[in-house]
């Protein structure tokens, strides 16, 4: 968390990937609790794939997390290319937020 923007890839995940494939970008998804997951993404692949993969790995329904790049929401049809993402960029994953109740706690 503290190191902020340029998170290191988690070693467990990066071991199985081919470093020679230069058309793929390494993208880190971090949640609000200090956890992070690294993906290798083809520039032209829709980011819906990454987002649904992430939810699947977290064991939650698609849509449970909202994904942003520098605060801007990522749409399903966006790609790393259309968002001008670079190798090593970070995406934030936030649990969806929903409210309505009065707040009774102090």
């Amino acid at each position: 968390m503290m190191e902020g923007l340029k998170a290191e890839p988690s070693t467990a995940m990066s071991g199985s990937l081919e470093p020679s494939d230069e058309s793929k970008l390494q993208i880190t998804v971090r949640d609000g609790e200090g956890g992070q997951m690294t993906f290798r993404v083809r520039k032209s692949t829709k980011l819906k794939k990454l987002m649904s993969n992430y939810c699947e790995k977290q064991g939650v329904a698609y849509g449970t997390y909202r994904f942003t790049l520098d605060g801007k929401r990522i749409n399903e049809n966006d790609t790393a290319e259309t968002l001008q993402m670079e190798d090593g960029d970070c995406i934030d994953a936030f649990l969806y937020q929903q409210g309505g109740a009065r707040c009774e706690s102090e």
Partner: peptide
């Protein structure tokens, strides 16, 4: 966005301007 404050102050964690 509502996530701005979430990112800034996390879940009661420390203040994270870099985020």
């Amino acid at each position: 966005s509502p996530f701005f404050y979430t990112r800034l102050c996390g879940s009661g964690e420390e203040f994270d301007f870099a985020g």
